[in-house]
Simulated scan of single mutants.
Amino acid sequence: MNRINVPIGLLFSSTGSYGTVARTLLNGANLACEQINHRADIAVHLEPYAINPEGNLAAYAPAMQTMLDQGIKHIVGCYTSSSRKEVIPLVEKWDGLLWYPTHYEGFESSTGVIYTGASPNHHMSPLIDYLFTNFGPRAFSVGSNYIWGWESSRVLREGLQTRGGAILAERYVPVGDTDMDNVIDAIFRAEPDFVFNALIGESSYAFFRKFRLACAERGIDQVARFPVASCNLSEPELVEIGPDAADGHISSSVYFSSLPGKRNNQFVAAYNDAFPDGPVVSAEAEAAYIAVSLLANAIAAAGSAEVNSVKRSVVLQSFDAPQGRVMIDPETLHAHLTPRIGRSRSDYTFEVLVEARKSVRPDPYMVCSSAALEPLQRQPLMRIVS
C-alpha cells in the first residue's frame, strides 16, 4: 500500500504554568500518530513536528509561522484561547488548518480551525443547570485573567440570570499567579452557594489547596458548604492539587478516564503504556487523540492532505472515540460530543454523576441550545449514572 506521508505540527506548551495539561495534549496527539502509522488499513503516515512555546503567548505566532514556512499545513495545537487567537490569522492567511483540541468558551468560528474540544453547550450549559438544581442560585466566580476566565464567567452570569440566580462577585488573577488569599477572603464574605473556577494551571492548583486549608482552619467542610465546580478540571490536575484537596470537586466535561467500555479501556491502557511517567490521561489527551485520528481518516478518504479536500472530507467522517461517537458539524466545524458531569475522588479519578445518552450537536454561539442535562428528572436523553 502506497502511503500518503503528511507532516503535522504539534504546538503545545509542554512546560510553563499550564504545562501539565499541555503534556497530556501532546501525549494524546503522539499516541494517535503512532497508532495510525502502524495501521495496515489506512494509507496515511503522519510525521509529527513539535514546537514548545513554553507558555509564552508571544512565542505562538512565530512557532506557527515556522511550521507554515516549512510546508506544514495541518497543526494540532494550543491550549489557551489567547494562544489560539494568536495563530488563527496565520493559518487563515497561509491556507493552513488548526486542529484545536481543547474545551473552550465558544463564540468563535473560523474556516481555518477544526474544533475537537467541548463547546459551551457541552460543558457550560450542563454545569449551570446542575449547579443551580443541586446547590443553589448564588455563585462566586474566580478565573484566570484572560479570555477563558472572562467569557466563562459571562456565560455563567447570563445562564444564572435566566434562572433567577446571580454571580455575587467575580475575581481574576494573572495566569500563573498563586496568591489566593484575597480571593478566598472574598468568598467567605460573599457566602455563595457554590464557587465557579475558571483558573488554569498552577493558579488553579494553588486555589484548590489553599481554599481547602482555609476552610479547614475555620471548621468548614469545604465540599459541603462551598462546592467548587469547573469546566477545565481533569485527572492530571487532581494529581497536581495533591491528596489533601483533590476530592469532592465538580467537573463538567465530555470525557473522564473512568468511563466504562472496551474502547476507553483500550485507550487508557495504550496511553499508560506509552507514557508511564505521565501525566495521566485526560479529556485534553482524548481531544488531541480525536483530532489526529479524524485528520488521518479525512486524508485517507480524500486521498490527499490538501486542506480544502480534508475539510470537505472530515465532515463526512465519524469516529468511535473513547468517549463515544464523534463527528464534525459541517456548519461550524465543531465536534459533536457527549456531555458529562463528574465528581473528583481521592484516587485522582472522577465518579460520573450524569451523562447524555448520545453525542450532542455543538452550538458554539449558544443560539439554539437547551442544556443537555436539564431538567434532570424529565430529560429523556440524559441518565443519572450513580
Rank of each mutant, 00 (worst) to 15 (best):
E217G: 03
G19Y: 08
S153P: 06
V76Q: 00
C231D: 03
R171S: 09
Y100W: 13
S81N: 14
L156C: 03
S313K: 09
Q377E: 14
K93Q: 14
Y255K: 09
I51S: 01
I72K: 05
A43S: 14
D363P: 01
E34V: 03
F135N: 11
I4G: 02
P62A: 06
G96S: 01
R163S: 05
M366F: 13
H45S: 01
P101N: 06
L373Y: 08
E47I: 03
V281T: 12
S359D: 14
A296T: 01
D277F: 07
T102S: 14
G165F: 04
V183T: 12
G242W: 12
D179N: 15
F275C: 06
S318R: 14
H249I: 01
A224M: 07
R357N: 13
V142I: 15
V76D: 00
C215F: 10
A305S: 15
E86M: 14
M1G: 13
F196E: 06
D69M: 10
V314L: 03
S83T: 07
I384P: 00
V315C: 11
Q222T: 10
I51K: 03
E355T: 12
S369C: 14
R84G: 08
H38W: 04
P279Q: 09
K210M: 12
L337M: 10
F256K: 00
A166W: 04
A166L: 11
T111E: 13
M64R: 03
V292P: 01
V44S: 00
R340L: 13
V44Q: 01
N52H: 08
S204N: 12
Y130M: 05
V155K: 12
F132Y: 15
F132C: 02
M180F: 02
D221S: 10
Y104K: 03
R171H: 11
T66G: 06
I51R: 04
V195L: 04
G176P: 10
L376G: 07
I341Q: 07
R23W: 01
A32W: 00
S251V: 01
N5L: 02
L233H: 12
G159F: 05
T15G: 02
S293E: 09
H74M: 02
G9K: 03
N30D: 11
P53M: 10
Q222N: 09
V314C: 04
Y289Q: 00
